[in-house]
Simulated scan of single mutants.
Amino acid sequence: MGKVMVIGCGGVASVAIHKICQNSEVFTELCIASRTVSKCDALKEKLQKTTKTNITTAQVDADNVQELTELIKKEKPEVVLNLALPYQDLTIMDACLEAGVHYIDTANYEPEDTAKFEYKWQWAYRERFEQAGLTALLGSGFDPGVTSVFSAYALKHYFDEINYIDILDCNAGDHGYPFATNFNPEINIREVSANGSYWENGGWVETKPMEIKRVYNFPEIGEKDMYLLHHEEIESLALNIPGIKRIRFFMTFGESYLNHLRCLEDVGMTSIEPIMYNGQEIVPLQFLKAVLPDPSSLGPRTKGKTNIGCIFIGKKDGKEKTLYIYNTCDHQECYKEVGSQAVAYTTGVPAMIGAMMVMTGQWKKPGVYNMEEFDPDPFMDALNKWGLPWKISENPELVE
Rank of each mutant, 00 (worst) to 15 (best):
K39V: 04
T252I: 02
D225V: 07
C334K: 05
Y277S: 10
P219A: 15
L298Y: 02
Y153I: 05
M356T: 06
Y326L: 09
T270Y: 08
H102K: 04
N182R: 13
V215F: 11
I104K: 05
G8F: 01
W123I: 12
G318A: 07
K213D: 06
N108A: 07
P295G: 06
V215Q: 15
E98Y: 09
L264G: 02
V37T: 14
Q66M: 14
T53S: 15
S24H: 13
Y103V: 00
T106Y: 01
T69F: 06
C263S: 11
Q48N: 04
G2S: 07
I308L: 14
D225T: 11
G202M: 02
N195G: 13
G318K: 04
K305R: 12
S197V: 02
L292W: 02
S297D: 12
K19R: 05
N259H: 11
G299Q: 00
V349N: 01
D166E: 12
H331S: 05
K245N: 12
T347A: 09
Q332M: 11
A115H: 02
K208Y: 10
V192L: 15
I244S: 03
G243M: 06
K213T: 07
D160Q: 08
A351R: 01
L239N: 08
K321N: 07
E220Q: 15
Y119D: 10
G304Q: 05
E281F: 01
E220H: 14
M269W: 10
K305V: 00
R214L: 13
W121A: 12
L388D: 02
Q122N: 10
Y87T: 14
R262S: 10
Y227M: 04
H102W: 05
G339F: 07
E206M: 15
E45N: 14
G387K: 01
A99P: 08
E235N: 04
H231C: 11
P396A: 14
V399E: 09
V149R: 00
G309Q: 01
I7D: 01
G309Y: 00
N327C: 15
I20Y: 03
S34V: 11
L30I: 02
L258D: 04
A58V: 09
M251F: 03
Y326W: 12
N171Q: 03
L134S: 05
I165K: 09
T181L: 14
H175Y: 13
S297W: 04
R128Y: 04
C96L: 04
M352S: 06
F312P: 04
A16T: 01
N188K: 10
H175V: 09
A16E: 00
R35F: 14
M226C: 13
D166T: 08
Y158K: 10
V267A: 05
D41C: 12
I55C: 08
I165V: 13
D63F: 11
P178R: 09
N395I: 08
G176S: 09
V358P: 03
A342I: 06
Y177A: 12
M251I: 08
P378C: 05
G222R: 10
L237Y: 05
